[in-house]
Protein backbone atom coordinates (compact mmCIF):
# COMPACT_ATOMS: atom_id res chain seq x y z
CA UNK A 1 0.00 0.00 0.00
CA UNK A 2 1.37 3.43 -0.89
CA UNK A 3 1.79 6.01 1.83
CA UNK A 4 -0.90 8.69 1.81
CA UNK A 5 0.05 11.57 -0.48
CA UNK A 6 0.84 14.39 1.92
CA UNK A 7 2.25 17.84 1.29
CA UNK A 8 5.99 18.24 1.84
CA UNK A 9 5.46 20.33 5.03
CA UNK A 10 3.09 17.71 6.47
CA UNK A 11 5.54 14.90 5.67
CA UNK A 12 8.36 16.81 7.37
CA UNK A 13 6.21 17.62 10.39
CA UNK A 14 5.13 13.97 10.83
CA UNK A 15 8.71 12.77 10.38
CA UNK A 16 9.91 15.32 12.98
CA UNK A 17 7.32 14.03 15.46
CA UNK A 18 8.39 10.42 14.85
CA UNK A 19 12.10 11.26 15.21
CA UNK A 20 11.42 13.18 18.42
CA UNK A 21 9.68 10.08 19.90
CA UNK A 22 12.69 7.92 18.90
CA UNK A 23 15.10 10.39 20.52
CA UNK A 24 12.97 10.60 23.67
CA UNK A 25 13.09 6.78 23.91
CA UNK A 26 16.89 6.84 23.52
CA UNK A 27 17.22 9.51 26.23
CA UNK A 28 15.08 7.48 28.66
CA UNK A 29 17.24 4.39 28.13
CA UNK A 30 20.82 5.44 27.37
CA UNK A 31 21.66 1.81 26.59
CA UNK A 32 19.74 2.29 23.32
CA UNK A 33 22.26 3.66 20.84
CA UNK A 34 20.04 4.14 17.81
CA UNK A 35 16.61 3.36 16.42
CA UNK A 36 14.65 3.34 13.20
CA UNK A 37 10.96 3.10 12.29
CA UNK A 38 10.37 0.97 9.19
CA UNK A 39 7.53 -0.12 6.95
CA UNK A 40 7.47 -3.91 6.28
CA UNK A 41 8.72 -3.32 2.73
CA UNK A 42 11.86 -1.64 4.10
CA UNK A 43 10.82 2.00 3.66
CA UNK A 44 12.41 4.15 6.40
CA UNK A 45 9.69 6.27 8.04
CA UNK A 46 11.98 7.89 10.63
CA UNK A 47 15.54 7.28 11.71
CA UNK A 48 17.63 8.14 14.76
CA UNK A 49 20.53 5.86 13.83
CA UNK A 50 24.16 6.93 14.15
CA UNK A 51 25.42 8.69 11.00
CA UNK A 52 27.92 5.97 10.07
CA UNK A 53 25.18 3.34 9.62
CA UNK A 54 23.56 2.69 6.20
CA UNK A 55 19.98 3.24 7.36
CA UNK A 56 18.34 1.89 4.17
CA UNK A 57 20.26 -1.36 4.42
CA UNK A 58 19.62 -1.70 8.15
CA UNK A 59 15.93 -1.01 7.52
CA UNK A 60 15.78 -3.69 4.83
CA UNK A 61 17.60 -6.22 7.01
CA UNK A 62 15.44 -5.47 10.06
CA UNK A 63 12.28 -5.83 8.00
CA UNK A 64 13.69 -9.05 6.59
CA UNK A 65 14.50 -10.42 10.09
CA UNK A 66 10.96 -9.61 11.16
CA UNK A 67 9.46 -11.21 8.02
CA UNK A 68 11.45 -14.42 8.46
CA UNK A 69 10.72 -14.61 12.20
CA UNK A 70 7.00 -14.14 11.55
CA UNK A 71 7.13 -16.93 8.97
CA UNK A 72 8.94 -19.29 11.40
CA UNK A 73 6.30 -18.66 14.09
CA UNK A 74 3.53 -19.21 11.55
CA UNK A 75 5.01 -22.49 10.32
CA UNK A 76 5.60 -23.73 13.88
CA UNK A 77 2.19 -22.46 15.02
CA UNK A 78 3.65 -20.26 17.76
CA UNK A 79 1.21 -17.34 17.36
CA UNK A 80 1.82 -13.78 16.30
CA UNK A 81 5.24 -12.24 16.59
CA UNK A 82 5.93 -10.00 19.59
CA UNK A 83 9.60 -9.17 19.18
CA UNK A 84 12.89 -10.27 17.68
CA UNK A 85 16.10 -10.09 19.70
CA UNK A 86 19.48 -10.57 18.02
CA UNK A 87 22.38 -10.64 20.44
CA UNK A 88 25.94 -10.23 19.22
CA UNK A 89 29.32 -10.04 20.95
CA UNK A 90 29.25 -6.24 20.69
CA UNK A 91 25.60 -5.51 21.40
CA UNK A 92 21.99 -6.25 20.73
CA UNK A 93 19.34 -5.49 18.12
CA UNK A 94 15.70 -5.58 19.12
CA UNK A 95 12.78 -5.37 16.70
CA UNK A 96 9.13 -4.97 17.73
CA UNK A 97 5.88 -4.51 15.84
CA UNK A 98 4.32 -1.03 16.10
CA UNK A 99 1.25 -1.42 13.91
CA UNK A 100 0.30 -3.54 10.93
CA UNK A 101 3.26 -3.52 8.53
CA UNK A 102 5.27 -1.08 10.68
CA UNK A 103 8.15 -2.07 12.94
CA UNK A 104 10.57 -0.38 15.33
CA UNK A 105 14.20 -1.55 15.47
CA UNK A 106 16.67 -0.42 18.12
CA UNK A 107 20.34 -1.17 18.68
CA UNK A 108 21.61 -1.51 22.24
CA UNK A 109 24.92 -1.70 24.05
CA UNK A 110 26.64 -4.99 24.83
CA UNK A 111 25.30 -5.27 28.37
CA UNK A 112 21.96 -3.56 27.77
CA UNK A 113 19.12 -4.50 30.10
CA UNK A 114 16.78 -6.19 27.60
CA UNK A 115 13.70 -5.87 29.85
CA UNK A 116 14.15 -2.13 30.25
CA UNK A 117 14.91 -1.71 26.57
CA UNK A 118 11.73 -3.57 25.66
CA UNK A 119 9.64 -1.48 28.06
CA UNK A 120 10.92 1.78 26.57
CA UNK A 121 10.45 0.47 23.03
CA UNK A 122 6.85 -0.52 23.76
CA UNK A 123 6.12 2.91 25.26
CA UNK A 124 7.61 4.57 22.19
CA UNK A 125 5.70 2.20 19.91
CA UNK A 126 2.38 3.34 21.40
CA UNK A 127 3.29 7.00 20.78
CA UNK A 128 4.52 6.26 17.26
CA UNK A 129 1.31 4.38 16.51
CA UNK A 130 -0.79 7.36 17.67
CA UNK A 131 1.09 9.70 15.32
CA UNK A 132 0.82 7.29 12.37
CA UNK A 133 -2.90 6.67 12.92
CA UNK A 134 -3.60 10.41 12.70
CA UNK A 135 -2.17 10.65 9.17
Amino acid sequence: MPLPMLGRKTVESVRDQLISILKEMESKDPEIEGSVLIRADGLVLASALPADIDRDLVAAMSASALNVSTRVLEELRRGTLENVIIRGAMGVVMIISVAQDIVLAAIGKKDANLGLMLVEMRRAAEKLKNVIEKI
Binding site: A63, S64, R71
Partner: peptide, 16 residues
Protein backbone atom coordinates in the same frame (compact mmCIF):
# COMPACT_ATOMS: atom_id res chain seq x y z
CA UNK B 1 8.43 -15.71 -0.36
CA UNK B 2 7.95 -19.09 1.32
CA UNK B 3 11.09 -18.53 3.39
CA UNK B 4 9.45 -15.41 4.76
CA UNK B 5 11.06 -12.63 2.77
CA UNK B 6 8.43 -10.02 1.99
CA UNK B 7 8.44 -9.55 -1.81
CA UNK B 8 7.75 -5.79 -1.65
CA UNK B 9 10.88 -5.60 0.53
CA UNK B 10 12.85 -7.47 -2.13
CA UNK B 11 11.36 -5.15 -4.77
CA UNK B 12 12.45 -2.03 -2.86
CA UNK B 13 15.97 -3.34 -2.26
CA UNK B 14 16.47 -4.27 -5.94
CA UNK B 15 15.15 -0.83 -6.93
CA UNK B 16 17.63 0.94 -4.66
Amino acid sequence: KELGINLPLLFRRITE
